[in-house]
C-alpha cells in the first residue's frame, strides 16, 4: 500500500530551518527498512504556477492554486503494509521535520 505523506508548514509559525541533517538520517532509515519510494522538498509557493486549459486556451496564473497560511512544503511516498505502520512513521517524521504531516493513501 502506498501513502502520500505531505509535510505541512505554516507561514505565520514556520518550523525550524535546521532539520535537514535529521531528515537525511530519517530518509536513510526509510530506505534501509524498505518504506521509501520517493521524497522531495518543495520550493516556496510563490514559485508555483497554475495552468487551466479546460477552456479555449491555456490560462496561466502566478502562485499556488490555494492561498493559505498552511501550505505543502514537501512530500514523501511510502510503501507500508497498513495505516498503523504509516502513522507511526509519520509521527516520527513530524518530529524530525518539526512540521505537521498528512498521511493519505493512494487509490
Amino acid at each position: 500500500m502506498q501513502y502520500l505523506v505531505s509535510v505541512i508548514d505554516d507561514k505565520s509559525n514556520p518550523g525550524s530551518t535546521d532539520r535537514q541533517p535529521a531528515i537525511s538520517a530519517f530518509n536513510e532509515r526509510l530506505i534501509a527498512e524498505g518504506y521509501w519510494v520517493f521524497a522531495g522538498g518543495l520550493a516556496d509557493t510563490d514559485a508555483a504556477t497554475v495552468i487551466d486549459n479546460r477552456g479555449e486556451q491555456a490560462v496561466f496564473s502566478d502562485g499556488p492554486f490555494l492561498e493559505s497560511k498552511e501550505y505543502l512544503a514537501g512530500v514523501w511516498v511510502w510503501e507500508a503494509p497498513d495505516l498503523d505502520v504509516a502513522l507511526k512513521l509519520a509521527a516520527e517524521a513530524s518530529k524530525v521535520c518539526d512540521r505537521k504531516i498528512e498521511v493519505r493513501p493512494f487509490q
Binding site: P81, D82, L83, D84, P105, Q107
Partner: peptide
C-alpha cells in the same frame, strides 16, 4: 478500507 486501517490488536508497546 481505503487507508488500510488494520484489523488487529495493537502491539504491547502501543
Amino acid at each position: 478500507k481505503a487507508a488500510r486501517i488494520p484489523y488487529r490488536v495493537p502491539s504491547a508497546e502501543d
